[in-house]
Write a protein that binds this DNA or RNA. Structure first.
Lengths: 237, 237
DNA sequence: GCATGATTCAAACGGGCGTTTGAATCGTGC
DNA sequence: GCACGATTCAAACGCCCGTTTGAATCATGC
């Protein structure tokens, strides 16, 4: 029933006359960001893409598979870029262990590059991704853990060398916090900016943002092990 | 059309025979956590609560207003508890400024208390909340910024005193990161635990978690101001 | 220039959605 | 013990959903 892609291409003179598949992916990226997965209907999506309603099921199979395609289109290259950058840093450092900041850079820079690249969906995609992290739908959760498993394992190994005072378990938690702050920050809904009264007119916004995030995360990662007595559920007064 | 609450109460001998309103709120909290707002239908919700389909519209007006009621029921007391705890700490400290860790405790402890209180919805609510942070629906975003404005302003003021080396703007960003790591962590979907291969059998899970989160966040908040040259978008090799 | 398979299209399918309605029931104050 | 407002209930309303269908159109290889 599904087709192999034929060799046909529209002459690339008009940037708007892309593949049907690409037009669907672009419209989906935008609308999933604006309204979320559940609240975006295939009717408004195909209308925005200028394609027939049935095209999504024809090219992607289902709405869920379309969502996974939206994610994988950007996420696979970004995570590969992270791994490659980390490998390059390690090569350049020779036998010396990388600093925590350097490893963090290998995580943040590809995300920042993507966010600034309007031709690759820019910020739209990162918002969709940040929202997907919090989505309880099983097909999303399974997809994301599969997508991230390799990259996370690779970076955990690198951080372990850079932070020898941490146990494996402690590092796992701290990486969890890092991912939290990162996804929350990159997904950055406007309401939260409003909530914190951040002024965000600037276009180089994200660059400034990551320059602030990196020292924060590096300090957190390097923190000494906690006393396990700092937080007490004191009830009486 | 809407009614004032009458004095009627079922005899509290049976914990399951609550108000219709409370039963709806409890079922909504659970289902919104499991499936999200959009993916939860009023039919399954009212069936789970054991009430008539029309009861949601009768008691709350609409599905959206029900969602706000679910949030406000827990969030208002929790944020008030945070403010009160901070005030108590300040009183106890006299004229000395609070430490960063102490202020953080005032933020984290009420959340931890709530998360461990099964009678107040326990973890369910915090997941709903974490997910709401990432939701693009305007009615949710406006509601959340209104709910948080007072609490955040109060804590920002306290942190400013504890961290005199930070500018107001820098602190705003760091609080943004703190909220990100906190909400992501408390919302903690299982997929992310899976992704990071965290073993989470323990029931006192959340307590351990916050004991790890607090030193991480404190270190991040106390970090020296960044160089603004650490992150470079180097492209060539 | 026709056969073939890929793609597009309009239309319809069955079903679930949030909300409304108006009558039945309940609980209380008089 | 009755009147009245609060609450519950079954049923229906109108609408939009994701998906499927089968015919029309297109692009290509022979």
């Amino acid at each position: 029933m599904r087709a192999q892609r034929p060799a046909r291409r529209t002459p690339a003179t008009d940037a708007l006359s892309l593949d049907t598949k690409s037009r669907i992916l672009d419209a989906a990226e935008l609308l999933f960001m604006e309204h979320g997965f559940e609240a975006t209907s295939l009717r408004q999506l195909t209308a925005a893409a200028g394609v027939n309603l049935a095209a999504v099921n024809y090219h992607f199979g289902s709405k869920e598979e379309l969502f996974q395609a939206v994610l994988t289109r950007r996420l696979d290259p970004m995570n590969q870029e992270r791994i490659d950058l980390l490998a390059r840093y390690e090569r350049e450092a020779g036998s010396k262990p990388l600093t925590c900041e350097k490893i963090l850079s290998a995580m943040l820079i590809p995300a920042l590059r993507l966010s600034r690249d309007e031709k690759r969906g820019g910020k739209h995609f990162l918002r969709v991704l940040g929202r997907a992290y919090a989505d309880p739908a099983p097909f999303i959760r399974n997809f994301l853990s599969a997508q991230y498993a390799g990259m996370i394992a690779r970076f955990k190994e690198a951080f372990l060398k850079a932070l020898p005072h941490l146990t494996k378990q402690e590092l796992t938690w701290r990486l969890h916090f890092v991912m939290g702050a990162l996804s929350y920050t990159l997904a950055g809904t406007d309401s939260l900016k409003l909530m914190l009264q951040v002024i965000t007119n600037d276009q180089d916004n994200d660059e400034l943002l990551l320059q602030r995030l990196a020292p924060f995360l590096a300090a957190g990662l390097k923190a000494p092990l906690g006393d396990a007595k700092k937080l007490e559920l004191v009830s009486g007064d």
